[in-house]
Write a protein that binds this DNA or RNA. Sequence first.
DNA 1: TTTCATGTAACTTTAAATAGTGCGTGAAAG
DNA 2: CTTTCACGCACTATTTAAAGTTACATGAAA
Lengths: 154, 154
Amino acid sequence: MKRDSRLSGVLHVLLHMAEQGAPMTSDQLAKAMQTHPVVIRRILGGLRDAGFVHSEKGHGGGWTIAKSLADITMRDVYDAIGRPSLMAMGNRTEAPGCLVEQAVNAALDTSFLEAEALLLARFGEVTLAQLAADFHARMAARSTSPTAQEHIHG
Amino acid sequence: MKRDSRLSGVLHVLLHMAEQGAPMTSDQLAKAMQTHPVVIRRILGGLRDAGFVHSEKGHGGGWTIAKSLADITMRDVYDAIGRPSLMAMGNRTEAPGCLVEQAVNAALDTSFLEAEALLLARFGEVTLAQLAADFHARMAARSTSPTAQEHIHG
DNA sequence: TTTCATGTAACTTTAAATAGTGCGTGAAAG
DNA sequence: CTTTCACGCACTATTTAAAGTTACATGAAA
């Protein structure tokens, strides 16, 4: 299956926006993400509606973070992009008449629901502030490393 | 993303084979699963290699279960079909140069690996014998129910 | 009033699962 | 020994959802 990278993508975008301070345009963000500006607008649309980011048109416009990073969890972001399905596997048929399939579905559903619940709980425990802190720690580690030579895009 | 239903499918097929007792041809199984015989052969190929089922050519041939249902877990079946990825989401880029993305990936990976581990552990706890027992319980419940009228395919 | 930037709809491309075709192989029936 | 049955496998086609792209409208600042 083609794996959905929207969550990964939005988190990346949000952290870049937070680092920047000033409003960033969809074009700038698209460059940093190596994707298309429209994809950025689409992906940030849900976050705007949820109140996590703000967008401004015209000169000097662009995207800004509307809340403190400490007040946004990965779970919030996941919800804001529309809660895409987390599991790559599903049942062959939902609501099958075949009792064998019902038994199989029940067993699989139990496990999948448990795994999803765990995942969402973990998402809820991680704030963007923590991710930003991890990023800064990596920055520090790189700048003191003797082999540090890569640069940061965006 | 398109959700993978191979695990669901193969469990379904195995239980039907177990119910039958006698060898079942790919055509029969395909009818029961409302799919193509080749799909059945493909899906059962991995299980044959893993020793869970046996296939016989020619007249009177077909597929049979090669082990006791109590000795096959959902985890075994998952492994036999090639351990397809369980999570529908992935990182935008593996091994990114961008430190922001590294921080995001690390956080997501932690959660995903935990959820996958839980899922596999649960799979390992469920045997096909348990699924068959659940199926029989559903059979009994249906036959005593006043509204029982659906039939079992296959 | 021109330029910049988002908002959105429609369309195209791409990746992965699933479906299907054709032909080869081997075993049993007649 | 030849026909029929059934799996084995390589290859192609279809389908679905994500991702990418184009086109144009809207609204704000220079």
